[in-house]
Design a protein around this nucleic acid. Structure first.
Lengths: 154, 154
DNA sequence: CTGTGTGCAAACATTTTGCAAGCAG
DNA sequence: CTGCTTGCAAAATGTTTGCACACAG
């Protein structure tokens, strides 16, 4: 099991975005640039509103509306540059997809998140999808429990 | 991969609910009973609104509002009698928790959900948790893709 | 120039809440 | 009787959309 992830550089990330722009005849605007930068510099999980506020704080000179954040996140997600986790009624959380695929171990007491990656599980998932006639696009695997530190506090 | 699940009887399910009622000093109302029965007789995944409409159709003599459905589902979920899957903006789907643990294959086009269970993955998850010092309580695994029928429509 | 992108506000969809009346225990 | 439960409508929450103007290519 690998436990380290190589992040891509901002330039590479930006280039991927520009490629999407190019391929689809879209435009590279200052709002999109500000969102990309903020996103890259804040790799934690965030909601649409979180990101909106961050961008406004970091780039007060750029006028931006929450609709643009939603629209840009949708564009990025469709193209695999961010991924999201659904939180029920409370909306969605996003994270920049500049790391290889990984899953999450989540501590229910302290909220700590450990990322992991397991090839055997990935291939079993593929098998299951195939057996059911599904073409997989992505998946979500989250293991909830209590981390070592929190177990000892008890 | 097993594809069959043993369900508990309605009586046992009802008894579990009454135990919750008792323990918390709550009341057993006709609305709650109608919801429980409808839920038991319709083991598919459903949204709050689905269930609301079903109950109104099956028990037209009982007056019921959607708020009661939400409140009852929340009560049932807190106590482990139903479980839910978050579908992003499109809300949540619930299912009665009278089956052994299983995971889900979800079609992104039509929303169809297929259940599966895979022991190998379960034990790999245990290994991962152990390697990271976690005591697992539960997990979430959802595979997203496009089902056979939707692939053919394309 | 052309057509994409934007902010704004209104519209939407889903869920939650306040309230007065109903009813289980 | 007591206080949990209900339906209703209003409010809240999170997201999407219509529109006219801005601006990238």
């Amino acid at each position: 099991m690998k436990m380290e992830f190589t992040e891509i550089s901002y330039d590479a990330f930006l280039e991927m975005f520009k490629e999407i722009i190019r391929k689809n005849g879209l435009k590279f605007t200052s709002q999109r640039e500000a969102i990309l930068q903020t996103l890259y510099e804040n790799p934690e999980h965030f909601t649409s509103e979180n990101l909106y506020l961050l961008v406004k704080e970091k780039y007060p000179e750029i006028n931006i509306g929450i609709a643009t954040v939603y629209r840009t996140l949708a564009l990025l997600e469709e193209n695999g540059l961010v991924s999201s986790i659904s939180l029920g009624t409370q909306g969605k959380k996003f994270e920049i997809a500049n790391k290889p695929h990984h899953d999450h171990l989540i501590c229910e007491e302290c909220g700590k998140i450990i990322e992991f990656e397991n090839e055997k599980i990935e291939s079993l998932q593929e098998e299951i999808a195939e057996a059911n006639g599904f073409a997989l696009t992505h998946h979500l695997m989250q293991l909830y429990g209590v981390c070592k530190a929190c177990q000892q506090k008890r």
